Simulated assay, not measured.
Amino acid sequence: MPKPQGFSYVRRPDGTVLITHRERAATTLRGGRAEKFLAEAEVGDGQLVMARWTGAYKIGNERQARSHPRNR
């Protein structure tokens, strides 16, 4: 599976976190979810963490999954 690219995040003064993908807003996190994300982003691979938090981690295998017997 290829590694996700093009994600970035901005921590705003009011405590929210804006995650963007290729300079377009992907999601906004507030409160406890924002804090959890920041803690996870500092420790792990930032691109993979942001892809997982935005739901954009399925890259390249959607076509194969569609034909799987479980998904028919």
Results as ranks from 00 to 15, higher is better:
R24Q: 12
R24C: 02
R24T: 08
R24V: 02
R24W: 00
A25P: 02
A25Y: 06
A25H: 11
A25T: 13
A26T: 08
A26P: 00
A26F: 03
A26K: 04
A26E: 08
A26H: 03
A26S: 13
T27D: 03
T27H: 01
T27G: 00
T27E: 07
T27R: 11
T27C: 12
T28W: 00
T28Y: 00
T28Q: 10
T28L: 04
L29D: 10
L29A: 09
L29M: 09
L29G: 03
R30Y: 07
R30N: 09
G31Y: 02
G31R: 06
G32K: 14
G32R: 14
G32N: 13
R33C: 10
R33F: 11
R33L: 14
R33W: 11
R33P: 09
R33E: 15
R33M: 13
R33D: 15
R33I: 13
R33Y: 13
A34M: 06
A34C: 08
A34K: 04
A34D: 10
A34Q: 08
E35S: 15
E35N: 15
E35F: 03
E35Q: 15
E35K: 12
K36A: 11
F37Q: 03
F37K: 05
F37G: 06
L38T: 05
L38F: 02
L38R: 06
A39Y: 04
A39N: 15
A39G: 15
A39V: 06
A39F: 00
E40A: 15
E40H: 14
E40Y: 01
E40G: 00
A41H: 08
A41M: 07
A41Q: 08
E42Q: 10
E42S: 11
E42W: 01
E42D: 10
E42R: 11
E42Y: 01
V43Q: 12
V43F: 02
V43D: 10
V43N: 05
V43A: 12
V43M: 05
G44W: 03
G44E: 14
G44M: 09
G44C: 12
D45T: 12
D45N: 15
D45C: 13
G46W: 01
G46N: 06
G46R: 13
Q47F: 04
Q47R: 02
Q47L: 05
Q47C: 05
Q47A: 04
Q47H: 03
L48T: 13
L48P: 01
L48V: 13
L48W: 11
L48C: 12
L48I: 04
V49D: 06
V49P: 09
V49H: 01
V49T: 15
V49M: 01
M50P: 08
M50I: 06
M50V: 02
M50T: 02
A51I: 12
A51H: 05
R52T: 10
R52H: 02
R52G: 04
R52P: 01
R52C: 01
W53G: 01
W53T: 14
W53H: 15
W53I: 10
T54Q: 08
T54V: 06
T54G: 02
G55Q: 06
G55L: 07
G55H: 09
G55V: 08
G55E: 09
G55N: 04
G55D: 08
